[in-house]
Design a protein around this nucleic acid. Structure first.
Length: 545
DNA sequence: TACCCCAGCGCG
DNA sequence: AAAGCGCGCTGGGGTA
């Protein structure tokens, strides 16, 4: 059963698309709660507009179709390029995701919710039917269907994660800041420790300057006789000079202050919860993005403030060596699959391709990112010899990108075509030697993008399936309101965090592992690729690794 | 004043 | 010696 929601109407359809009802809806949460017992798939234009209000009213749904996210995938996918949807002119459904208000009101009333859905709501039924038509005509409808289901589940999870929030102890965060920076400054002056470090820098160099300004800092270092091209820590870190140690410390603390200091906590932490905006599909490859608060960059330094509620635990799990395993599965490279029976990098060493675990890691990264220099590039030939199919897959993706072609993930998300500027650079290649090398450079660069796209994008699909499966399993572990049950509170590409009542933590850990196995089978079928997860049951995020 | 761009650094 | 992919955020510094 599908129930298409639009404004104050709900239109029902059987699984085969036969209309099965059309009713006016006055009390949306009550209506959804009642119909949810039939386990329908709710079809709506945008999960961000419909679901927060429902959750706030205590209504959780099992499944949905997010037409906005699905549209973006179908529009771009090679698998649906011939569909009416993909051939149509860009319209309302192609609007950029920035449609959502910067800081939406925390609790929309029902009236506000529906009013805010109004101006961006074209004919949802027509759009849904167009999407079904496109998927049905795809070469592998099941794969694309899985992708759309996973993407839509991700949309639900993103809203739920914001609703539940990441448990964050502001007082502990403050203690942590004070320990390294000193007391919170009253005005805009530097915290004591930064002031002290700045004094030290000035004393060592022998003249006044502002270390917060990259321009001044570069000048200062040169004036002191250091030959540097930039002030980045990887360059100056290699220099032997008394100013370097305090300078790196200054940079580290300065970063902490500006990115995750008191002001950050005031803006983003409320009621013991960090609630950033997660943006499913926000990255071209299908990864999530986040906006506000830098949720996906939460530094290890402040993770100690992420603490479970009393009587609760954090179950933190990450997929070990996800991208190399995805490459093995994608390519069906038997040797690489076998290398992944345990620690993948050890397995690669055991295969004889490289000498050390470190080399295995660097070589695999190089293969997936397209390294051209250094150790990583030098290791490529032996890697290619040991794992020909895997390396051929990424090389083919790179060559396709260099020709300006489009590549796709396992489930059918396709890369964007290079833009008009790229085309212009390529067509000018014959004009001069400089133009040719420029065109070549740009082509190679795009090739590195498409090379990585197939792996990163397929890994994102795996992670979505993992999380979607886990979400369902968590719901079934307990009864009660959403936040009373174990629920996902954080997601970081290949890592998830569940906030769970302590007595359920072990059960959660088992579900996490089971969901990972499911995800591998769903996407890659019977192929014996393992996707092990390492799980920690902790009170503090800092103890997870 | 209101932007835009860049360097730098955090995360995977 | 941090190169090769994908992001977001901040402050400085420039331009309109």
């Amino acid at each position: 059963m599908f129930i298409v929601l639009s404004r104050a109407r709900a239109r029902s359809f059987e699984d085969d698309g036969t209309p099965a009802g059309d009713e006016a809806v006055h009390d949306l949460p009550a209506y959804v709660a009642r119909r949810e017992r039939e386990r329908p798939r709710w079809v709506w234009n945008d999960t961000r507009r419909w679901y927060p209000g429902l959750l706030a009213a205590g209504v959780r749904v099992e499944r949905c179709v997010d037409l906005r996210l699905s549209h973006a995938i179908i529009r771009a996918s090679m698998a649906t390029a011939a569909s009416r949807l993909a051939r149509a002119e860009a319209g309302e459904w192609d609007a950029p995701p920035a449609l959502v208000e910067e800081r939406p009101p925390r609790q929309d009333t029902l009236f506000d919710l529906e009013a805010s859905a109004l101006p961006t709501e074209p004919d949802v039924v027509a759009e849904w039917l167009l999407q079904r038509e496109a998927v049905a005509a795809a070469p592998e409808p099941a794969r694309l269907g899985l992708l759309l289901a996973a993407e839509s589940a991700g949309a639900l999870i993103a809203v739920e994660m914001k609703h539940g929030g990441l448990p964050f102890d502001k007082a502990l965060h403050e203690t942590l800041l004070e320990r390294v920076l000193g007391p919170r400054p009253r005005g805009f002056e530097r915290p004591a420790e930064l002031e002290r470090l700045k004094g030290e820098l000035v004393r060592i160099l022998g003249f006044e300057f502002n270390p917060d300004s990259a321009v001044e800092l570069l000048k200062a270092l040169r004036k002191a006789g250091l030959r540097v091209e930039s002030t980045s820590k990887w360059e100056i870190g290699a220099i032997d000079h008394p100013v370097i140690v305090p300078l790196l410390q200054y940079k580290k603390l300065s970063r902490l202050l500006t990115a995750n200091g008191w002001a950050w906590a005031d803006a983003w932490v409320d009621g013991g919860r960090f609630r950033p905006e997660y943006v499913p599909g926000g990255v071209v490859t299908g990864r999530w993005a986040a906006s506000g608060g830098g949720a996906l960059q939460l530094p290890k330094q402040v993770r100690g403030a992420v603490v479970a509620d009393p009587g609760w635990k954090l179950v933190v799990a990450d997929a070990a060596q996800l991208e190399p395993r995805v490459l093995a599965a994608l390519s069906g490279d038997r040797g690489m699959v076998a290398a992944g029976s345990g620690d993948m990098y050890e397995g690669i060493v055991a295969s004889g391709a490289v000498a050390t675990r470190d080399q295995a890691k660097v070589a695999m990264l190089g293969a997936m990112y397209g390294a051209t220099t250094g150790d990583s590039a030098r290791l490529m030939p032996s890697l290619a010899k040991a794992f020909p199919r895997a390396i051929r897959l990424v090389e083919d993706a790179a060559r396709a990108g260099e020709r300006g072609e489009i590549v796709s993930t396992r489930l059918g998300r396709s890369s964007p075509a290079p833009g008009p500027e790229w085309d212009a650079v390529q067509s000018e290649a014959s004009a001069s030697a400089a133009a040719e090398s420029r065109a070549r450079g740009r082509a190679r660069s795009w090739g590195r993008f498409t090379r990585n796209f197939v792996v990163q994008g397929t890994a994102a699909e795996w992670a979505l399936c993992w999380m979607a499966g886990l979400r369902g399993r968590l719901w079934n572990l307990a009864d009660g309101d959403f936040v009373e049950r174990p629920h996902l509170v954080f997601f970081l590409h290949d890592e998830v965090m569940v906030h769970a009542p302590a007595h359920l933590a072990d059960a959660v850990a088992q579900e996490v592992a089971a969901a990972a196995e499911d995800a591998g089978r769903l996407i890659f079928g019977a192929l014996p690729v393992r996707f092990p997860v390492t799980t920690a049951i902790v009170d503090s995020y800092a103890d997870a690794k």
